[in-house]
Design a protein around this nucleic acid. Sequence first.
DNA 1: GATGAATGAGTTTTCATTCAT
DNA 2: AATGAATGAAAACTCATTCAT
Lengths: 202, 202, 202, 202
Amino acid sequence: MTALATKTRSNNRREQVLDAAAMLFVAKGFSGTSTRDIAKATGMLPGSLYYHFQSKEDLLVAVFEEGVKRISDCVDVALNDSGQDPWTRLQSACEAHLSMLLGGSDYAHVVVRILPSDAPGADQTLVTLRNAYETRFTTLFDALPLNAQTDRSILRLMLIGAMNHAPVWYRKGRDTPKGLAQKFINTLRCAQSNTQNTSPKG
Amino acid sequence: MTALATKTRSNNRREQVLDAAAMLFVAKGFSGTSTRDIAKATGMLPGSLYYHFQSKEDLLVAVFEEGVKRISDCVDVALNDSGQDPWTRLQSACEAHLSMLLGGSDYAHVVVRILPSDAPGADQTLVTLRNAYETRFTTLFDALPLNAQTDRSILRLMLIGAMNHAPVWYRKGRDTPKGLAQKFINTLRCAQSNTQNTSPKG
Amino acid sequence: MTALATKTRSNNRREQVLDAAAMLFVAKGFSGTSTRDIAKATGMLPGSLYYHFQSKEDLLVAVFEEGVKRISDCVDVALNDSGQDPWTRLQSACEAHLSMLLGGSDYAHVVVRILPSDAPGADQTLVTLRNAYETRFTTLFDALPLNAQTDRSILRLMLIGAMNHAPVWYRKGRDTPKGLAQKFINTLRCAQSNTQNTSPKG
Amino acid sequence: MTALATKTRSNNRREQVLDAAAMLFVAKGFSGTSTRDIAKATGMLPGSLYYHFQSKEDLLVAVFEEGVKRISDCVDVALNDSGQDPWTRLQSACEAHLSMLLGGSDYAHVVVRILPSDAPGADQTLVTLRNAYETRFTTLFDALPLNAQTDRSILRLMLIGAMNHAPVWYRKGRDTPKGLAQKFINTLRCAQSNTQNTSPKG
DNA sequence: GATGAATGAGTTTTCATTCAT
DNA sequence: AATGAATGAAAACTCATTCAT
């Protein structure tokens, strides 16, 4: 019992730090958040953070990892519950992604809010983590029945851009992640049959 | 050495500061850039910046204003040269926006790279400036001949999200702003005639 | 698992701490070595040191004491094995001293590497310990058959300076403690008969 | 006049920092001295030091350089005023060296008090600086008319060890640098004619 | 128009140490 | 005998900013 209790308490403390860091990184960016801010939000002294994390950047990486884990898990579960239809599957993933981003998971939000160049010492790690997650969308777009001449990459990058921009303008009540996902995917879906468009100026 | 010459040289100096600041804000974010970084990049001493700007946040606002001005002018010129067709006009604006963002105008890039929450003291100003620019897209989307049930706002926000995400993945040579604009608008254009789609899960 | 075994194991642990501390104090000085460094080198956590020692300075004193003990014992044994001739005895002591210093006893090395002023709280203790050891050389120099006008103190301090400087330049293989001792003492030995020298500038 | 006055005042401030640093490094070692200590001794705030020096180690290097410069100059002047006799020249150098070390030049004292391993980031620089100075003694010993079998290096290293140990025991009034130099060199001088000594134990 | 010199508050981080378990 | 978790002070250093010149 004691071992478990100790571990739990210890984990709680570490998790409190991660929670506070995630929240603050989302609210003020990485450089805009001081370790003091994080410590204060956790009820610790600044130095005490360093028992749990070796540096501010390590802490960011830990938050980022947790964010990638959470959003990945959420998307994976949604895909498991989803059927075979490629568009349906994409929409499920989109909805899961948006619900994490907009539903208040600071961890997931950090993944799209913090740019690698915000944390020079950790940039490669962040890029790698982000890529590991976004792979899912490459796979989902590969599965779509699109015309040969359609650029799947562009479609994917449009969707990712659209989704990750949502936290900037989304207002709870006015929209829902589900509704947005439906509209986003509906918009993309027509690219399939409409590629005969000519460009206007050339 | 007339008054004009003096003023010009002085303006040059001020512009050098703005240039350096724009470049650094893009590369490292607002909090991630120090006034020393900017001074060094301009060949000045840190204190000398304060002859030109009252504070770091004032400097950001100046860069941001210049960025909004430049991207607005570019889009406005493109629209002037564009005909009447609403989709063509949107595509021209999109191309102009992308060419500023991807063609190396650090000023324009600052406008999408720096979030208001990165600069707590200037956030309202930044929001206002950004909105003043983005109005153009609201107008352009309002002019589109869309089905009644199509959500113009969502389409607009998707496009803005897609465009502003481009600096993250764009590689010169592989794509061009013009090509991207064409693909982006083509994708949106079909939303017009395809609203009979049913959502997959409900 | 008797009381003796326990004690032995415990002593081993304490000795490991002392060993690590001695090594690190030699390598990086007293202030330059952190208790964390010592703990890590012993495979302990920082707090665990405090079961064995009340403070970092107590630990230094313990290392210093052990160093003085070891080098004293070594010199005393050498003197026991030495005959009656004062110069021979001095040379034996010198060789013993050098062999401890250069042969890799971090403990002995600490005694000459750490200055009392490096550890303000323990300085008096360190001075006392060092003096207790160096007494031997006073005695040995007193026994030398020197001219009346020869300054035995200076000779002694020269030798001690020369010996304690050796760790800075000594390279195993090129020299040996024994060879050095011989050369050092040979050099001093002539002071006896050469005191009629006049100073060069007055 | 203003330019000169400004330069002078500025230099004074920088020199005050160097003076304070030299004094404190001698008194408490490098790691034992904090930048706060140095700032306080100069009447500055801790951060203000960094206008003059990039880091604590840079400050040490500057002090060390000044120390090497001062003791080098002092020795060089002494050698200039000295005649041709090699032993006389060595004694002059020794006296100059000791007078710097014992006469209160904290700068010179730093050079022998601080070991390269005390400042891991600057160690190579310190070694190089020290060697550049000690070259002089190699030259002086090379010029001595010694028996072929005499080890000039050992003699040199004995002298350097003896000289640099002096600050530990020297008491003004009881000795003088000049008197010590005379005794030191006298002691070494006989090595010349006394090489027929046999070692006592082998 | 800009510099040299500094300030004072703040940064991230490390320190020796404590103590319940 | 040692650990996990922290503390509080201090470490080195950076920050945006000021101001006489």
